[in-house]
Design a protein around this nucleic acid. Structure first.
Length: 485
DNA sequence: TGAAATGTTGGGGCG
DNA sequence: ACGCCCCAACATTTC
């Protein structure tokens, strides 16, 4: 008699390769029932945002197709995860539920509850490590606590052993369970109602194959120029793997192994500044997830409590916030970034820092407003990375930028987009300006603006705040929360 | 994974 | 020839 069926509960591990839960289930020899549950309440206050759901929809479609090639596609369900799993166990006579762990606070709580519930029913329940290089509990400082500064954290991690993805591999075949499919992918309602996301498809290929292709393309060449090119948004300098990693279409061990593999002949690894820097970005991803695990309130509250009393600016009618969201601040590099975000569901990292800094320091609007906007508009929206990024920018997080570090959007633009190519790609109304003025159109004289086809205040806004003035106000506000008990 | 203010130095114009 | 000033260029400090 063959073993009882096993439910494989897919979540943010939408791949067949290097998927320990699936591999373990396949090894058992019983039928495998792959299921995805859309459980918005189970995500706490951070159910996936709009752009992210677009990606999720297509990634689930790709996973379903891959699974169907083995005989049985993904079972889609909506509702409370514990209840749905309980019903499926009953329907299928499953003896076990396997999944790959998540580390966000709501997910940790949900998994604990499910583990207890299944345990009480004598159903085997097992979570596997798949989405990080290191489990949060495996990385502690000498006092046994979490690191709060990246450099020592990552130095410590590099001493640890990275699990080999080949050891998990991709199961060749497993006995398929025939189940009524019930709900369809479409019925989960993941796609946005409006035509907002229609342009995303021109840029992205969600799914395991797309992720694999993107990794190969990056690692076979661009990675060697990564440390130089990564800061220039007009170039394609970064890997653009963020969404694939968020949804687990590819795992960080596979990324690590791909970089290692390209050095197989020499054995020297990492072999270039580009590789070293790229791996350190995986390190930031680990760091962010570990910090969120240990400081579970940080999506809502500053890690440094003195920032609870930060005097944010008034914004009647949300005029400033709206201008920022729509890419109409009058600062070209900020507006270009915000428009790239809206059009593609993604923004170059250098520009994320500039745009975020502008919201928090020039407009003095709460970082949570920015975090929410990014959460809803980024296809790669990730609670750990988003939280770390915004708290870093606002100066209130772990290893944060010092409060006095205020990006000058003009200088940043001129430094990292010297020709204005990035600005012109997303803010076409500035296309007629020379590099000397494309980042500071308000300084051009009337004839220059006229020749460039720019009508300040009409075709492109004047700056909504004055840089020098905003900088002074930000420093004063930050001063006001310092050195008080 | 800054920017601006302030300080220092040294070349060159000039009386 | 000398001292003085200006100021770019660079370094340091401060926010």
């Amino acid at each position: 008699m063959s073993p009882a069926p096993i439910l494989v509960w897919f979540r943010r591990d939408l791949r067949l390769d290097d998927n320990p839960a699936l591999a373990a289930a396949a090894r058992r020899g019983g039928k495998v029932v792959p299921v995805y549950i859309e459980d918005r309440a189970g995500e706490g206050a951070w159910a996936a945002g709009g752009a992210s759901r677009w990606w999720l929809h297509h990634s689930l479609g790709a996973l379903d197709a891959s699974l169907r090639a083995n005989g049985s596609g993904l079972i889609f369900r909506a509702g409370d995860s514990a209840e749905v799993l309980g019903r499926l166990v009953a329907e299928t006579g499953a003896g076990a539920v396997y999944w790959n762990r998540r580390y966000e606070p709501a997910s940790v709580a949900l998994e604990e509850a499910i583990m207890a519930r299944l345990g009480s029913e004598a159903i085997e329940a097992a979570g596997f490590a798949a989405s990080l290089l290191f489990e949060p509990k495996a990385v502690t400082n000498k006092q046994g606590g979490p690191f709060q500064v990246f450099t020592p954290y990552w130095r410590h991690c590099l001493e640890l052993e990275i699990p080999d993805p080949v050891a998990v591999g991709r199961p060749d075949w497993w006995p398929a369970a025939r189940l009524p499919r019930g709900e369809t992918l479409e019925s989960l309602g993941l796609l946005p109602g409006r035509d907002w996301a229609d342009g995303f498809a021109a840029r992205w290929t969600p799914g395991e194959q797309g992720a694999r292709d993107a990794l190969r393309e990056f690692v076979s060449g661009r990675i060697d120029r990564y440390s130089k090119d990564r800061d220039f948004p007009a170039l394609r300098g970064s890997s653009r793997l963020s969404a694939a990693l968020h949804f687990g279409e590819i795992g960080p061990r596979q990324v690590w192994a791909a970089v290692k593999e390209r050095n197989a002949e020499t054995g020297v690894f990492p072999s270039s500044e580009g590789e070293r820097r790229f791996l350190a970005e995986l390190g930031w991803r680990e760091f962010a997830h570990h910090l969120l695990y240990h400081f579970s309130r940080t999506p809502e509250a500053p890690l440094r409590s003195e920032y609870e009393r930060f005097p944010w600016a008034e914004d009647p009618g949300k005029r400033l916030l709206r201008a920022w969201q729509r890419g109409k601040t009058g600062y070209p590099i900020v507006d270009a970034g915000m428009r790239e975000l809206w059009a593609t569901g993604w923004m170059h990292n250098r520009v994320r820092m500039i745009a975020a800094s502008f919201l928090v320091k020039h407009l003095r609007l709460p970082w949570g407003e920015g975090a929410r906007w990014f959460w809803d508009t980024l296809v790669d929206a990730d609670l750990a990375n988003n939280t770390l990024g915004w708290q870093w920018t606002a100066g209130c997080g772990a290893d944060a930028a010092p409060y006095f570090r205020i990006f000058n959007p003009v200088l940043q633009g001129e430094k990292f987009d010297p020709e204005g190519a990035y600005v012109k790609a997303w803010v076409p109304e500035l296309g007629g300006l020379s590099p000397a003025f494309v980042h500071r159109p308000w300084e051009a004289d009337a004839a220059t603006l006229d020749a460039g086809g720019v009508e300040l205040g009409r075709s492109y806004p004047r700056p909504i705040v004055d840089h020098a003035e905003a900088r002074r106000a930000a420093l004063a506000a930050l001063q006001s929360i310092k050195a008080r008990p």
